[in-house]
Design a binder for these strands. Sequence first.
DNA 1: TTCGATTTGTTCGTATGTATT
DNA 2: TAATACATACGAACAAATCGA
Lengths: 248, 248
Amino acid sequence: MNAEPPLWRMIRDSLEAALAAGEYPAGTPLPSEAKLAARFGCAIGTVRRAVDELVAARALVRRQGRGTFVPDHDAMARLPHDGPDRTAFYFFHIRPEDGARLPPETELLDFRAGLPCPAWIAPHLGIAARAPMIFARNLQRIGGRAVALDELWLPRALFPGLDRAGFAGRDGTVYGLYQKRFGHSVIRTDERLKAVPAPAEAATAFDLAPGAPVLRILRVAYAIGDRPVELRISHADTREHEYFNTLA
Amino acid sequence: MNAEPPLWRMIRDSLEAALAAGEYPAGTPLPSEAKLAARFGCAIGTVRRAVDELVAARALVRRQGRGTFVPDHDAMARLPHDGPDRTAFYFFHIRPEDGARLPPETELLDFRAGLPCPAWIAPHLGIAARAPMIFARNLQRIGGRAVALDELWLPRALFPGLDRAGFAGRDGTVYGLYQKRFGHSVIRTDERLKAVPAPAEAATAFDLAPGAPVLRILRVAYAIGDRPVELRISHADTREHEYFNTLA
DNA sequence: TTCGATTTGTTCGTATGTATT
DNA sequence: TAATACATACGAACAAATCGA
């Protein structure tokens, strides 16, 4: 009774598995649609249907005349390739109230490798409690003003060899680092927001009265194939900035 | 040198304009793809490409064997048609911390028609300051517990004849009301979030200490064709609930 | 219940245009 | 210029879901 899924879906899943396995790193094109069609023994339109889905899921981008690629986080952040860049801010939602989109500057405050995973974090990342973790604390500024204090938790098993120098000395964003050095292309995040009294560190960093309201953001970032790779707790000062979200 | 846009885009825009103009109200199918192809003088695949875009933008839904429709907000909220419903909560993001998705209950606290539009609200809705507005205040509960206090501002010109009885006596959600009675199908919202000290009414409703942190959400809802139809200011108690957002 | 008409879903194939190298 | 790759558009055939006779 169970009808098998359509061909384009099997091709999509096959491609997604290949991407999750690290074939086709960012910058190197996939086989052309004609070659993929030959490989899968189907029409070119069927391959296009499968790729369409992965493009919609932000796992791939097409470039006419060039090929199909895993999107490069930092390249997207740099290029103003079609109008004011949207992708650069896809995962950074704190903006000045006037809506300006200044890029944030990041200062590394702390970095530790080998901490055991706190019990409450483990289930979010699908790992064992006390698994070895990498921990970092960042201060984000916009236009020189401190707006967010981030704590990052990464399973060390997913980021072998990552140390403070490698983390601090990256070229672009942290997600660009995850992608270029470790092949983890973040394409989805879940965020849970609360309004909470400012913790001590946040109050100090933002020059806030203790207990003043701040926005607490708990984010889990997922790479291609729905693999959680990072948990982040941010506290943001929303006196002159806000968290922006558009649902379409 | 300016190449004209592809045929499918012109068809998409034409369909979108028809939807925004109120043809094909929710529940009545569009002409079949074959008929549309004949009308536009193109291949059926080209029509499908155009409809694909509108489906992706949540302006249309397809039903195999039945036709293509403007999605019905409340029908989506009622039917568990494929697994746990996601669309019902597409525009309601407050959830218990455990992730349960109980439907909120709404209590109407206040309703006024004819108030002049506050100057700061007018630009968000693209209308003139002091334009006549409809104002409503709602209390949202989840599992009996008050979690959000909403203030709604609607341009009266877009909701002719809407009075307290019509507003309070609706069948389903407010967005369902907008759609069924006035033809405004909300498909997109912009939300701006801040952590703020609880205003007096919110503190009372939530049994909070005055000045305790609450989440303030400013939402503008857009109907098909990017027409703003509602501004909403919500204050949410996030002690046991949170604002959930997934970016994909 | 069966059947046929209608409508969308899937898959195939082809031709031509446009961008890149 | 030529080769390659994606983008657009056309057309056809059959499958699957729906609905009413």
